[in-house]
Computed example of a mutant assay.
Amino acid sequence: MKIGIISDTHGDYRSWEKAWNFLNNADVIFHAGDVLYHGPRNPIPEGYDPKKLSNALNTCSIPLLIAQGNCDAHVDQMMLDIPIQTPYVFSIIYGKRFMIQHGHNISDEDIHNLVRRYKLDFFITGHTHIPLLKKIDSCILINPGSTSLSKREDKINSLGLIEDGTVRIIDVETGENILSLNFNVTPHIP
């Protein structure tokens, strides 16, 4: 099982190309929102080309599940053949339960409640552009950071990978681990 996790691409085609080097053999890719538009508070990314990015996503050979971000609008959905789901994406893959929500309008308490209610193995957010890996009970909370507009002090753009019992947040330029966390690979039995 290999799952790619990205967020906050903000229309940056070049960052998608870099991320694709690590995602091209994934079984599925989760996108935690803010897909095409850079947003009024963000600078325009260097590789900003939302039309080219939408074409790349539309022709992506790997299943792509997208949660709506605060910068995703109806016009963005008109450019994509892939549904932007709102406000949550819920999926069970290889016996593991995943929920994705962009993160701009959910509290820590809400996340904890959802983790318990749905017996989640992974809860994925974006929005902050800062990578995060932490455990909530037996669930792993993942924020892959941004592939395009990092708000880390060192400005490293990042994505997440789940593979072989490990969640890693990696630098999209070098592939080096920024954060990692091991988990139990035994499938969840309802």
Rank of each mutant, 00 (worst) to 15 (best):
D72Y: 01
T125L: 03
A67P: 08
P63N: 09
G165M: 07
S138V: 04
N143H: 09
S146L: 13
N105C: 11
F22D: 04
M78L: 15
P131V: 10
P83K: 11
H74L: 14
I162P: 09
K134R: 06
P83L: 11
K134C: 11
L57Y: 06
N105F: 03
R152D: 03
P144R: 01
L133H: 11
K96N: 02
Y37T: 05
V28S: 10
N24Y: 12
D154E: 12
N182K: 15
A32Q: 08
I29S: 08
R117H: 06
G4Y: 07
V35C: 10
L80I: 15
S91K: 08
I189A: 03
L57W: 08
A32F: 14
L120S: 02
N21E: 15
D164A: 05
L133T: 12
S138Y: 09
I111N: 05
P144L: 08
S7A: 15
D12C: 10
I106W: 00
D171G: 13
R152F: 10
Y94V: 12
I29T: 11
G33S: 07
P144M: 02
D76H: 12
S15R: 02
T86V: 08
K52C: 12
G160W: 01
Y48A: 05
V172S: 00
T147A: 12
P83W: 04
F122V: 03
V35G: 02
N70A: 07
V35R: 01
F183T: 01
D12R: 00
T86R: 08
H188K: 11
Q68C: 14
D34I: 07
D108Q: 14
H10I: 10
I169D: 01
A32S: 13
I162N: 06
N143Y: 14
N42R: 02
K151S: 12
S7T: 01
V185D: 03
P131H: 02
I84V: 15
M78N: 14
G145T: 11
S148Y: 04
L65K: 12
S138K: 15
D81E: 15
